[in-house]
Simulated assay, not measured.
Amino acid sequence: MITRRPSDERGQGQFGWLQARYSFSFSGYYDAKHMGHSVLRVINQDIVRAKSGFGQHGHDNMEILTYVLSGTLSHRDTLGNIADITAGEFQLMSAGTGIEHSEMNRGDVPVELLQIWLQPNVRDLAPRYAQKSFERTSGLTCIVAPDGEAPEALPIRQDARIYRGILSTHEQLSQALHEGRKAWLQLISGRIRVNGQLLMAGDGAAIHDETELTLQAEDDSEFLYFDLP
């Protein structure tokens, strides 16, 4: 079963310095029908105004992935990490017993990003931080994988994998979905068909009880694919 989550039906947050679209319930947006999918709890598409951002705040026992789509985000945390995350880079924080951080746009143009939270399968471990860029290649690239499974990927404390997908117009790929697994696809740009169902930029799709997915690009497209327990 593939259930489309249309972009224009997502929740909205308008805060002056921040414009946000919420795939699942978050902050002041609540929808009992959209509380997450498997261990995937948050997908927010954020646009942060120039010279503003998320001031220092804390998290615990959550796996937090940030993908910067445009601009540069400046990171600082209580582990001592200070870094700029530029367009195309991924940041992963395992909050564990607790971490405080800030994410600021110090530039003169807006920053667009995806903010993604997954629940961990082990709690109260020491927090940690990782950041990486990946070569933009056609097909699926594993960005996040369970601890110790894929040295080239960012490590997560959960039996989950996240892939970045890039397809050119009319390009197609197939992806198996193993028994007992769920998936989510979040389309960043372009248009793709998932087993014939058309997704537009900003759309998501909850996927379960499928054995194989056929992804067909109608336009040049980029997406994130989540393989979930």
Rank of each mutant, 00 (worst) to 15 (best):
H75T: 10
Y163S: 13
P155I: 02
E100S: 13
N121V: 03
S70C: 11
E152K: 09
A83C: 10
Q158S: 08
A130Y: 07
S102H: 06
K132V: 03
P155H: 04
A153S: 11
L114G: 01
T141D: 07
A153W: 02
N81M: 10
Y129T: 03
L73A: 15
G80L: 14
Y129A: 05
D147E: 10
P151I: 07
P120Q: 10
E112V: 02
S70V: 07
Y163V: 01
V68P: 06
F90T: 11
Q115C: 12
R164T: 13
D108F: 08
P146W: 08
A95V: 03
L69A: 07
V109M: 12
N81R: 05
P155V: 13
L154Y: 05
I143D: 04
M93D: 00
S70D: 14
C142W: 03
R164C: 07
P155M: 12
S74H: 14
G80H: 10
S133I: 07
R128W: 09
R106V: 01
P120L: 05
R106W: 02
E89V: 04
R76G: 09
Q91L: 15
L114K: 02
R136T: 11
T141Q: 00
Q91C: 05
Q119M: 15
L125T: 08
K132F: 00
I156M: 04
S138Q: 09
N121S: 13
G107N: 11
P155F: 05
G107I: 08
S133K: 05
T97Y: 02
I156D: 06
A126R: 09
L73K: 12
S138N: 09
D77L: 05
T137A: 15
R164W: 08
A95I: 00
D124S: 14
F90A: 04
H101R: 13
A95T: 03
Y67D: 06
Y129E: 03
G139Y: 01
P127D: 09
T72A: 14
F90Y: 15
I116D: 02
L73M: 15
E149W: 13
L140F: 09
R123W: 10
D124R: 14
V68Y: 08
P127R: 07
A153C: 05
W117N: 07
T137G: 11
E89G: 03
Q158D: 02
D84C: 06
G107C: 15
L79Q: 06
I156K: 02
E103N: 03
P146G: 12
R128P: 03
L114M: 01
A150S: 10
M93C: 00
L73R: 08
Y67S: 12
T78W: 00
T97H: 04
R136N: 13
R76K: 15
I85C: 11
L73D: 09
G96P: 00
E100N: 02
D77T: 08
A145E: 10
V122K: 13
H101Y: 00
S102D: 00
I85G: 00
G96A: 04
E89M: 11
G96Q: 06
L113T: 02
E135R: 06
I156S: 01
Q158K: 02
